Simulated scan of single mutants.
Amino acid sequence: MPLVTREDRNGLTILTLNRPDKLNALNVALFTELRDHVLQIAEQTERVGVVVLRGAGKCFSAGHDLADIAVGEKPPKPSFQADTIEALANLPQPVISAVHGHCYTGALELALAGDLILAADNAKFADTHAKWSLTPVWGMSQRLPRRVGLAKASEMMFTARTYTAQEAVAMNLANFCVPLADFDAEIDKLGQQILANSWFSHRANKALLKETDGLPLAAGLSYEIHRSKGRGPDMQERIAAFSNKTAKVS
């Protein structure tokens, strides 16, 4: 049975963590399969416009498999899991992390690779590294404060407390909170909203956001002016379609 499944829906690709009997705990074998999918998707920009990462069964993921840690993990190379998360974050396509149920520690580091986080109302977020006398090596200390601010990230990391989906939205950790009963429909709805816009613009805008993150304003503005990808190949078609629609209404 695959540990990560892939489903393609007309431009929307859904990657599902598939260890439901283990609450999708993250082990080396799962990361190996996830990395293979991510590397393939990175080369498929003409057929994949949006990527969704979610979990099978009761939750997104309970986090790093502590049993794997206890016996001594043997990744294919050093920093393998961190590099896999970085590859996911650096996909040219927009990435949505769709979180329901548990999203703890290593799972939160994985979810933070998403450009957007869509949370079901039963989602629970926590960083419990300190609970187990561990420190982050998959990106928590860098991605979490960039998303929620240094003070809130410090609170999450020092207290190891659990936060609800509503709290996650309030602190800008998650973008949306939706009823669990509507979770699948809301994932598809958000995906379709993004797919309806220019895939060229999505790739260009994502690159601009990532490449200028942390730059002073003047440097960022200069980068945008001089490194912008400009107009996409579908610009004329989109403007013509809008003009025709407006003409028909008037």
Rank of each mutant, 00 (worst) to 15 (best):
L17E: 01
L39T: 09
L34S: 05
L88W: 09
G49W: 03
A42Q: 14
G106H: 11
P20D: 08
L23T: 02
I14N: 06
A29F: 13
L26D: 04
A82R: 14
Q93Y: 11
A82Y: 13
G55L: 01
E33V: 09
L30V: 08
K22A: 15
E43S: 15
T105L: 05
K22T: 10
N24W: 04
S61L: 04
D65K: 06
C103F: 10
T16P: 00
D36Y: 09
L34K: 08
S97Q: 03
E86M: 07
Q44T: 08
E46C: 04
G101Q: 06
A98L: 01
A42I: 00
D65R: 02
L116W: 11
A29P: 04
L118Y: 13
L88N: 11
V28M: 06
H100V: 02
A87E: 10
D21K: 12
D36H: 13
H37T: 00
F60N: 01
E33G: 10
E109C: 11
G101F: 03
H100K: 15
G49H: 11
D65S: 14
V38I: 15
I96V: 11
A25L: 05
A111M: 03
V51E: 03
S79D: 15
L91N: 06
A98K: 00
H64V: 12
S61E: 11
T84Y: 07
N18D: 14
A56K: 12
Q81P: 00
E43V: 10
L116M: 13
H100T: 11
L17Q: 06
H100G: 03
S79W: 07
E43Y: 00
G72H: 13
I69V: 13
R19W: 01
K77G: 07
D36M: 11
A67M: 11
V50K: 02
T84I: 07
R54T: 15
A42H: 14
D83V: 00
T16H: 01
T105P: 04
L12D: 03
L26G: 01
C103E: 04
V28L: 01
Q40L: 08
Q81K: 15
A107L: 02
H64Q: 14
A113L: 04
A62V: 12
P76Q: 12
A111D: 03
L12E: 03
P76F: 12
G106R: 03
A98N: 02
A113N: 10
A87K: 07
V51P: 07
P76D: 07
L112N: 05
R54C: 08
E86N: 09
A29Y: 05
L108A: 06
G55P: 02
L88Q: 06
T105F: 01
G72M: 11
L17M: 04
D68H: 03
G101C: 04
G114E: 05
